[in-house]
């Protein structure tokens, strides 16, 4: 009897540990699928119009062009408004961020402090705008499953510099697309949400044509609308250099 009790307990512990491990593995697999889906194109060229809405509902716009190769090289340049035209930034692996200010005709590596500041007056931070793979930055845990979505809690891995203490990512089960991300600050308070909509298949790839970042503290929002997109156009590595950033 005593032997059976010990055996049963061992089996129960095994099942529990195995279950937890399986849960984590599932979460990691889901996040891996998200990364694979978001970074499926070899490269992409986007033209984006942003609409910034203040708490009174006043709207201002920006237009930018974005080139990305793989999951970790991205270059962004402003096309409008006129006073921001030509400003650009280059995001490379290893938290490597370079800013170009045409008025000074210079590029400069920017400090990590800039990553958590607002990107050109939008509700996105430079960190939000970086090219990245979530699996490299976050440890996921599956916290909710329903018929349509999974919800993952993402905790930054050790050594990752970020102002967010956790993210809640809602992923559409049908295509692994993250339809909503909630961002939490150091006090554990939800401070921003990113919602993706108008998700369409362009060629072989899924893409949200509209995203909306809402700052819950300031009650402002920024909508990004992709007006033009091209995939797998063979963007050269030379594009992701300071030489190109200054052109």
């Amino acid at each position: 009897m005593k032997k059976n009790l010990v055996l049963s307990s061992l089996i129960l512990v095994f099942i529990m540990i195995h279950g937890v491990t399986m849960g984590q593995k599932d979460a990691m697999q889901i996040l891996q699928n998200v990364d694979n889906m978001l970074n499926a194109p070899k490269d992409q060229s986007l033209t984006v119009v942003t609409y910034i809405v203040d708490r009174r509902g006043n709207e201002s716009t920006r237009e930018l062009t974005m080139l990305q190769k793989g999951s970790d090289k991205r270059i962004v340049k402003f096309l409008a408004p006129a006073d921001q035209k030509g400003i650009g930034f280059l995001s490379l692996p290893g938290d490597n961020l370079t800013l170009y200010m045409p008025a000074y005709r210079k590029t400069r590596k920017v400090g990590g402090h800039v990553k958590n500041t607002k990107f050109a007056g939008t509700d996105y931070t430079y960190e939000d705008m970086e090219a990245k793979r979530y699996t490299e930055r976050y440890d996921p845990e599956l916290i909710e499953t329903n018929n349509d979505n999974w919800v993952l809690e993402l905790i930054p891995k050790d050594g990752i510099r970020t102002d967010y203490t956790k993210l809640h990512m809602t992923i559409r089960r049908s295509d692994n697309y993250p339809v909503k991300i909630a961002y939490f600050d150091k006090a554990g308070v939800m401070v921003k949400t990113l919602e993706s909509s108008n998700i369409q298949k362009t060629g072989e790839y899924w893409l949200a044509r509209q995203t909306k970042m809402t700052d819950l503290k300031t009650k402002t929002s920024t909508k990004m609308e992709i007006t033009n997109v091209k995939f797998d156009i063979g963007i050269n590595d030379d594009v992701f250099t300071e030489r190109y950033l200054m052109r």
Partner: peptide
């Protein structure tokens, strides 16, 4: 030179 020490920009 220009770069970043921890999160502080330095040059």
């Amino acid at each position: 030179f220009a770069g970043s020490l921890a999160t502080v920009g330095v040059w």
